[in-house]
């Protein structure tokens, strides 16, 4: 996580021209939402083919995924340990000399598999914008201040109970180029692993009652309202810390594993 300013990837693809208005994009999203409600089905994941998110148009597969029984390597996941992740990496507010600007917050929760078992000693990675909605990334050209005391990258291992915990700054919303006057709701990117590689996922955690939810095609690509809600953290005063930080709780449930759990997946060892 050093030399962050030298690690930016290359120029973006040009598919997100700001040609539509918010009203046009909102009308597209509303039509998809009505059509979904009429089906009576329940979707739990985002649609890959979701035209209101313009960048998805040429990047979604057109064929249904092919069923494969997980086997061999797919039934397992990489192992991460304390040689990989320093405990201090879970505190995004201490990576520089000074205190970052913004609302200091704690975000914590549990990573569970589809049967409710804790995902133990597994890697959780986060990245996010600063309080002004700016990423430390060459490609982020939003003219909000870079905070020299905030990089916005953290890692931790879940503990023996599947719990992760980060101390960070509440990120700000930011504009993007999907359409004219497009703004992303404030979010933290989460990358998580389960006990099997087929459970690998990357997602985004949001904050309660964000007025941008209804306007955001990435959030709305999850057509099911209850499924969308699962990405929204809960303010938890028991997590809030006296004269220090506000607290949010957010649990992550992975898809089911196909491997019979080993004792080492569920029993305590060194954490």
């Amino acid at each position: 996580m050093t030399d962050i300013l030298d690690e930016a990837p290359t120029a973006p693809a040009s598919s997100d021209a700001a040609a539509s208005t918010q009203a046009e994009v909102s009308a597209e999203m509303a039509a998809i939402s009505r059509e979904y409600a009429d089906t009576g089905a329940t979707e739990t994941q985002p649609r890959l083919d979701y035209p209101p998110y313009r960048s998805s148009v040429l990047r979604h597969p057109t064929k249904d995924p092919h069923h494969a029984d997980p086997e061999g390597i797919e039934l397992w996941a990489p192992v991460f340990g304390h040689q990989d992740v320093d405990r201090l990496e879970a505190d995004l507010t201490i990576q520089h000399r000074g205190e970052p600007v913004g609302e200091r917050m704690i975000v914590t929760g549990r990573v569970l598999d589809g049967e409710g078992r804790p995902v133990r000693h597994q890697l959780v990675e986060i990245w996010q914008a600063n309080a002004g909605g700016r990423y430390i990334h060459k490609r982020d050209q939003h003219p909000a201040a870079i905070d020299p005391n905030f990089t916005g990258v953290g890692r931790c291992l879940t503990d023996g109970d599947g719990t992760y915990s980060f101390t960070t700054i509440k990120p700000g919303p930011y504009p993007w180029k999907n359409h004219r006057n497009a703004w992303r709701p404030a979010h933290i990117h989460f990358s998580v692993f389960g006990p099997a590689f087929t459970q690998r996922m990357i997602t985004q955690m949001y904050f309660p009652s964000d007025p941008l939810f209804a306007l955001d095609p990435i959030y709305q690509s999850i057509t099911d309202p209850a499924a969308r809600d699962r990405l929204v953290a809960t303010y938890d005063h028991d997590v809030t810390s006296h004269e220090w930080a506000t607290g949010y709780r957010w649990d992550i449930v992975l898809t089911g594993s196909h491997r019979t759990p080993l004792e080492s997946d569920t029993e305590g060892d060194d954490a």
Partner: peptide, 24 residues
């Protein structure tokens, strides 16, 4: 809001977005 106790429906994924290059 958020996840009621006992809800074991899977958490939805989201795009990795454009700004993972300095993080992952």
């Amino acid at each position: 809001m958020s996840r009621p106790a006992g809800d074991l429906q899977p958490t939805p994924g989201q795009t990795v977005g454009p700004f993972f290059g300095y993080a992952l």
